[in-house]
């Protein structure tokens, strides 16, 4: 017991990495936690509005679930390609082109997701959805739609920009392996948030 306590003190007394991760990675995790809490707040307030609303519209009547399912498929697939990009980048025996190829596929997936989201927004705005009202019921329905998907879409857009810059830098041997891993953490976080939005906003 005393030995275990001593070992813990050694690990946390400074001069070592208690998480066995570089400071950039720890900071990326700190960012992900704070950004996650932001989305938790948004989804929490959405839940509040949803429970107290007497006339929340039926999502199946408003959204084309086939399109949303396709968007989900693309984002999940882009997460898998990103994981492979990180794996290939960390493998010192692998050629840089392998990781680059997975990165480009991820960017393609992100761009496709954004294109479909733009189509969905255009379609709903054309049908009368506005930030302060909509033809289907509770005005908060459209407000939360634009805020939740808009906030998430902005994250995807930032991810696509970051990944594009990373791919160029990786090709020019200016980006580090850790840089690819950090970009991967961000991209998986964006996918993770979509899992919650897809379930709580589009299905439940």
């Amino acid at each position: 017991m005393a030995q275990a306590a001593e070992q813990m003190l050694d690990r946390w007394s400074g001069g070592v990495c208690p998480f066995e991760a570089g400071w950039r990675k720890v900071m990326m995790w700190a960012f992900i936690i704070t950004d996650g809490l932001l989305f938790a707040g948004l989804l929490g307030s959405y839940g509040y509005a949803r429970i107290m609303s007497a006339r929340w519209p039926d999502q199946a009547a408003v959204f084309d679930l086939r399109l949303i399912a396709l968007m989900t498929f693309i984002l999940i697939s882009s997460s898998a390609t990103m994981a492979n990009a990180v794996g290939a980048a960390r493998d010192e025996g692998a050629r840089r082109s392998v990781s680059l190829r997975w990165l480009l596929l991820t960017i393609l997936g992100g761009a496709a997701f954004l294109g479909m989201q733009a189509y969905e927004w255009t379609h709903l705005i054309g049908a009368g959805a506005r930030l302060d009202g909509n033809p289907w019921g509770d005005p908060l329905f459209a407000s939360y739609f634009f805020i939740l998907t808009g906030f998430h879409g902005t994250h995807v857009l930032i991810g696509v920009i970051v990944l594009t810059a990373l791919a160029i830098r990786w090709q020019k041997r200016l980006a580090s392996r850790e840089g690819v891993e950090l970009a991967g953490l961000y991209w998986h976080f964006v996918d993770l948030v979509w899992v919650f939005i897809f379930t709580l906003f589009y299905l439940v």
Binding site: F19, E20, A21, W29, I32, I33, S79, A83, G184, H188
Partner: peptide
């Protein structure tokens, strides 16, 4: 699954994984 396998939390040190999971 995304957190454990894609974000590699399963392979990180336990204090880091716990910081993220418990925090969120």
């Amino acid at each position: 699954l995304i957190g454990a396998h894609f974000m590699h939390l399963r392979f990180e040190r336990l204090p880091l994984a716990l910081t993220v999971i418990v925090g969120l």
